[in-house]
């Protein structure tokens, strides 16, 4: 639910990183914070447990600069991935304008990726939204693990499992090494902003 301030010419856009627990959502935001520190004028806010897992969400405002005379302020959120935190996950989705689904490419995570995507669809339905109409992209994270001989799913396999019928942009990535983290972010912001613009016209 983007808010457009016509007086100050500011558009606020909400992007949520979603996906199974330990898939790399928080690591994406940490990388973005390091890489784009000139556009982020605040510390990352994180509500987490003692065990360092995301409890409620991570949050980081990101200044995109001017587009067509409007200042775009992107609000980046992550959700807690663990199944037991569904209530808070649902809250974070409220008013979302775009989603990055961060899948864990490790072979052992195949089932939890699928379950998390299904959970996302259920939670969106509560807000009368769905993946057919909402701007969203996929990120297949942790591809760097293949070099260490850890079994990872092939992109074909991940596409089959998660993107069949959707055909959304998908990025093999390593949030840890910063591979395709910026590309993922750029894509989702561009899709979300386009969708807001179309809605206004």
């Amino acid at each position: 639910m983007a808010f457009i301030n016509l007086k100050n010419k500011v558009i606020q856009v909400k992007i949520v990183y979603y996906g199974p627990g330990r898939g790399g959502k928080t690591t994406n935001l940490e990388y973005i914070h390091r890489r784009f520190h000139d556009r982020i004028h605040a510390e990352m806010v994180t509500v987490k447990t003692h065990g360092d897992r995301t409890l409620f969400f991570d949050f980081m405002p990101f200044d995109l600069g001017l587009i067509h005379g409007y200042q775009i302020k992107v609000q980046l959120y992550t959700v807690p991935g663990q199944p037991k935190y569904n209530a808070t996950r649902k809250l974070v989705l409220r008013g979302v304008d775009g989603i990055v689904f961060v899948a864990d490419a490790m072979a052992v995570c195949r089932e939890s990726n699928v379950q998390s995507l299904r959970n996302l669809q259920e939670n969106l339905a509560a807000y009368r939204k769905n993946l057919a109409t909402l701007p969203w992209v996929l990120q297949y994270n942790k591809i760097d693990l293949a070099e260490q001989g850890i079994p990872v799913l092939s992109v074909d396999q991940l596409e089959q499992d998660l993107n069949r019928g959707f055909g959304r942009p998908a990025f093999p990535a390593s949030a840890l090494k910063g591979i395709n983290v910026a590309a993922t972010l750029k894509k989702i912001i561009s899709l979300a902003v386009t969708s807001i613009r179309e809605e206004l016209m």
Binding site: M1, A2, I4, L6, K7, N8, D97, L200
Partner: peptide, 11 residues
Amino acid sequence: MSYTLDQRQLD
């Protein structure tokens, strides 16, 4: 879904 507020409303 987005919504807007104009100068008059915000003032």
